[in-house]
Amino acid sequence: MSTSLLMIEDDTRLANMVSEYLSQSGYAVTHAADAAQGLAQLAAEVPALVILDLMLPDLDGLEVCRRIRASAGEAAKVPVLMLTAKGDPMDRVVGLELGADDYLPKPFEPRELLARIRAVLRRKGDGSGAPAAANALQFGSLAIDRDARVVTLDGAPCDLTSYQFDLLVALAERAGRVLSRDQIMEAVRGRELEAFDRSIDVHVGRIRAAIEADAKNPKRILTVRGVGYVFAKQQD
């Protein structure tokens, strides 16, 4: 059975090429040529992942991402892989802040897109074939259920993307150990990619907003200036 993907991209030629390539790996791509079509399709049927172009004729891709995250039900949780035309770091930062799970600068190799899609879906737990990590991690009132991929604080669920969940797990599993941004990236992705440090900082900021009583004065994820981050062993 094919895994459904939604590609919101105004370049029909590129969309057709991507659709054909991904179909060979078991993905069924629905193409939407603009934001309106894409959002309508998403409302009708939630795919496993959305491939979202930054530059669309009717609406900025960043705004589309914001609307997806603000939507109701399962659509709000769908993983989003954003395509950035020039690979501008600020576009990536803003996209990540709005809730995108990953980004890929244009032009790109189809096989890298496939690898990124697989990595995002693996983090989400869809179609990877790998068993979920056993047991839960408990740090005071913070609980990280690796099987259910759910984080709760005082029993209330925390709103994290699939990438942010895995980043939090990577830090929590190594509680008390200082990790550089490169080490965090490798732990989360499972392979080295470009060392885009700001992406880690953005995601850590989002995680802190979800799990800290005061994100500006964190007690759980601490910054080690000039090095990286450490997840505190003793909390609450």
Rank of each mutant, 00 (worst) to 15 (best):
L49R: 02
L179R: 09
R13C: 03
D126T: 14
A33T: 11
R181Q: 10
D182A: 15
S4I: 00
L96S: 02
V224Q: 15
G125W: 06
D126L: 13
K233G: 03
A195S: 08
N217L: 11
T30F: 00
R67T: 06
G99S: 01
I221V: 11
D182C: 05
A143R: 15
A43S: 15
A133P: 02
C158S: 06
R116F: 05
L160Y: 01
L193K: 05
G73C: 10
A76F: 05
M17E: 07
E109T: 00
I207R: 04
P79Q: 12
S2D: 05
L222F: 05
E20M: 08
A48E: 02
K86W: 02
G38K: 04
T223K: 14
A70Q: 14
D10L: 07
E194I: 01
P89L: 06
D11V: 06
I68M: 15
L6T: 03
K219W: 00
D201E: 12
L39D: 10
V227Y: 11
E45R: 12
V50W: 13
A143C: 13
K219F: 00
N16G: 12
A175K: 04
G140N: 13
T84V: 05
R174C: 14
A48Y: 01
L52W: 09
M185C: 07
P218E: 09
T12N: 08
Q24V: 05
T84S: 12
T152D: 04
A187P: 00
K124I: 00
A70F: 03
L222A: 10
L160V: 02
M1D: 12
F196S: 08
A209T: 10
L22H: 07
P47S: 09
D236Q: 13
A85Y: 05
I144D: 04
A33L: 06
V93C: 02
R206V: 01
K233S: 07
E9V: 08
S162G: 08
V120L: 12
E97P: 01
G129Y: 08
P218G: 11
S19P: 01
H203A: 12
D88I: 02
R225H: 11
E9F: 11
A148T: 01
Q235R: 08
S180H: 08
A115G: 13
M1R: 06
R220A: 11
E212I: 10
Q235M: 04
L193W: 06
A133C: 02
V94C: 04
A75P: 08
F196D: 13
R149K: 15
M185P: 00
Y103I: 07
C65N: 05
S128C: 12
L52D: 05
H203G: 00
P57M: 06
D236T: 05
R225Q: 10
